[in-house]
């Protein structure tokens, strides 16, 4: 039976998360279709066609899907759901918004943040901020699940899927008012191979400039702990943790972050973790591969100099 992957995109570009969710789908079965729903989303659909192993790309191009409104998207997905045994989306803000609505409309449960496929009906997911891993078997006919993209490697882009156009338009009561996106030249936090994160000890928004320099020098993304976001040092979409972004880069540098359970939940699967903190008792040192007990305002400039 076939698997449907809901594409993650901003109409113009397909996000790397989609290629990672397709990899998860291929661990379940071989007939993988991708749904690209958006407005003027031809470019995103073209990229989806190139994802290795994708059978068919379904394209729903309409103004009603422009801003990924959950009411509209969920009805569209439900309209094609009977063709599929699995419906997957990235555990992104869109996937988390839309998919539970889809599941309830289909009267099936959802499995959130899947990190491992055991079999076509059994999956592993973290619970309690990653303090435990639950192996869950779905008893439903249609398995609806969100996938933790950082747990899978993106598929290649050498495919040539066919395209099917969906012209059903669904719209509900929700009206889009506005959107403000943080502009950044740096790589996307979820996709970056290096992440430099700062915590409360950065002291001010201005002081984050040295971390930005470090991130830029390493070609990485900037992240932050909840404390730094709450203090207003950086915007909240940079928050790494249980309720922010989950990342697993090759290198994660935590500067002035104590390492609360909720923060660790978002980064402890990074390949190499470096912690710079002046408190030798900080819990972050328990997960760090390399720990440096030092004042960040001395260590980070020196680090910038040496790399």
């Amino acid at each position: 039976m076939a698997i449907l992957v809901i594409a993650e995109h901003d109409n113009a570009t397909l996000k790397l998360d989609t290629a990672k969710v397709v990899a998860c789908a291929q661990a379940v079965g071989s007939e993988v279709d991708v749904l690209v729903a958006g407005h003027n989303c031809g470019a995103a659909a073209d990229s989806a066609k190139q994802l290795a192993g994708v059978r068919q790309v379904l394209v729903a191009d309409s103004a009603v899907y422009a801003n990924a409104i959950a009411e509209n998207l969920s009805q569209l997905i439900v309209s094609v759901a009977s063709e599929y045994q699995h419906i997957l989306a990235a555990a992104s803000s869109v996937g988390k918004d839309v998919l539970p609505r889809v599941a309830a409309l289909l009267d099936v449960a959802q499995i959130s943040e899947v990190v491992e496929v055991v079999s076509e009906d059994t999956f592993v997911r973290p619970i309690y901020a990653g303090s435990a891993m639950a192996t869950v078997q779905s008893l439903d006919a249609i398995k609806v699940m969100t996938v933790r993209a950082s747990a899978f490697d993106a598929v290649a882009q050498d495919g040539s899927a066919s395209v099917q156009t969906l012209d059903n338009e669904y719209s509900g009561d929700v009206e889009f008012v506005s959107q403000t996106l943080s502009e950044s030249e740096r790589p996307d936090l979820g996709a970056a191979s290096v992440v430099v994160s700062g915590g409360r000890a950065m002291g001010s928004a201005e002081n984050f400039a040295i971390l930005e320099q470090l991130a830029d020098k390493l070609g990485g993304a900037l992240g932050a702990s909840r404390a730094a976001v709450d203090a207003g040092y950086v915007p909240n979409d940079l928050q790494v943790g249980q309720t922010g972004k989950i990342v697993a880069p090759d290198l994660y540098i935590a500067v002035g972050i104590s390492g609360a359970i909720q923060h660790l939940a978002g980064m402890k699967d990074s390949k190499v973790i470096v912690a710079i903190n002046k408190d030798p008792e900080a819990p972050i040192f328990q997960v760090a591969d390399y720990g440096l007990e030092a004042d960040l305002f001395e260590a980070v400039p020196k680090l910038l100099e040496l790399i």
């Binding site: 801003n67 889009f176 008012v177 506005s178 979409d237 972004k245």
Partner: peptide, 9 residues
Amino acid sequence: IDGGLQTLK
């Protein structure tokens, strides 16, 4: 939302 903020009515 992932990239910033969105307002709905």
